[in-house]
Computed example of a mutant assay.
Amino acid sequence: MQGKWIEVKIVTTSDALEPISGIFYGLDVKGVAIEDPRDILEREQGPLSWDFADINIFEYGKDAAVVKGYFNEEDNISEIEKYINDKIDELKEMGIDVGEGKVVIKAVFEEDWANNWKKYYKPTKIGEKIVIKPIWEEYSPKENEVIVEMDPGMAFGTGTHETTKMCIEALEKYVTRDKTVFDIGTGSGILAITAAKLGAEKVIGVDLDPVAVDSAKNNVGFNDLNNIEIRYGNLMEVINGKAQIVVANIIADVIIFLCQDVKKFIEKDGYFICSGIIRERKDDVVNKLTEEGFNIIEVNTLGEWVCIVAKM
């Protein structure tokens, strides 16, 4: 998909990434990207680092995080800007520290956007054996490593965010060859593809964003898989049957909303892996899961983020 896009960027803090990202999901956004300085610093200090000099994420200060939403040229950007500013004001009234809360709008070409990603998106090892590798990077796998080839394009999901890392680690722990896995809000397809690469019998990824669906399908092709399918639409409308594992890396409010209906799609003794939850919302999600009859198996944290593994 080529062409010109309108990039709407919100300058915020790492701790406010979830509610700020949620603003975009209330709009007809065509893609969302999150840049968290904590991810950059962690990667630079780790064994698989990128060229730190190439990163422009610190344009607004080393503690500033950025959420970007991408819209069509034909969209009413003035209305979108007003909606976003109103929502930022609401978050401030709720006592959420959104940092600068600045909104920056500019036109970008998709080719330029993609090339900016390529400057700092490098192979990343997660858990015991998963390596997320951009398709344009060379990497020689070590013994027992599982390579997941990715080009995130305009879709969310590169593997660098804490929530994605924790979900991948949970999948590595619970996926076996007899398992069916559903990935809700698949984005770039990174979790669905990881589950398929780990040997799941069948994987279905679903997303309401057609840009994400296209991205996920392309990424499936890069990995030459025959045990995975990507579908456009709502989980409740495009999937029949049940899985032993359902994973959702979204935001706390959506997970809470899903808790009741997702039970219909999980086998007895199956697992619901959910993340995208900031620490302050952990108890809300745990309480809702418990209320719906789930047993909480794990509550893992990384940075300010939480991943919960619950069992039916």
Rank of each mutant, 00 (worst) to 15 (best):
E18M: 04
D63T: 04
D112N: 00
V11N: 03
N218M: 05
E267T: 11
N287E: 15
G189E: 06
D151C: 04
D269G: 02
N115T: 04
E145L: 02
C167S: 15
I147A: 02
R177N: 14
C274H: 08
I296Q: 06
G95C: 04
F222R: 11
K264H: 15
E59Y: 01
E149N: 14
L17N: 08
I132K: 05
R231N: 06
I296G: 01
K217R: 15
I296D: 07
I80N: 01
C167F: 10
P152D: 05
D224H: 14
G199P: 04
N219Q: 09
I130C: 00
K87S: 11
W5I: 02
D28H: 09
I308E: 07
R43G: 02
A107D: 14
A114Q: 14
E291H: 15
M150F: 09
N234E: 12
G22L: 10
G221E: 15
D75R: 03
E172N: 01
V98L: 01
I6V: 11
K197V: 00
V203T: 04
F265Q: 08
K263E: 13
N144M: 02
P19C: 11
K122M: 10
L27W: 09
T290E: 15
E172I: 08
E145Y: 04
E237D: 15
K4Y: 14
V285S: 10
S14G: 04
K92R: 15
K106H: 05
V66N: 07
V146E: 06
D209G: 02
P37Q: 10
V254Q: 05
V103W: 10
I55H: 07
A33T: 14
V211G: 00
E291D: 15
K82S: 09
I80V: 05
V67I: 10
F222M: 08
G99K: 06
I126H: 00
I34N: 12
A310V: 00
E229K: 11
D112Y: 09
M166D: 07
G99R: 01
G127T: 02
V220D: 05
I204P: 08
K282W: 13
I250R: 01
E100G: 09
R231K: 14
F265A: 02
K125R: 10
G46R: 13
L225P: 00
L17W: 06
A248G: 03
V11S: 06
I126A: 04
E44T: 07
F222H: 13
F272M: 06
I55L: 03
Y139K: 10
P141I: 05
E93L: 07
I77V: 03
E201G: 08
L27F: 12
T124K: 12
E237G: 04
A64F: 07
E110C: 02
D28E: 15
K92S: 11
F257Y: 13
V306K: 09
R177S: 15
V32H: 08
K282S: 09
V238F: 00
N56W: 13
I23K: 07
T124D: 10
I57L: 13
A155E: 04
N116F: 13
L198H: 08
E110H: 03
A192I: 03
D28C: 00
D214F: 14
N76W: 10
I278D: 05
F71A: 00
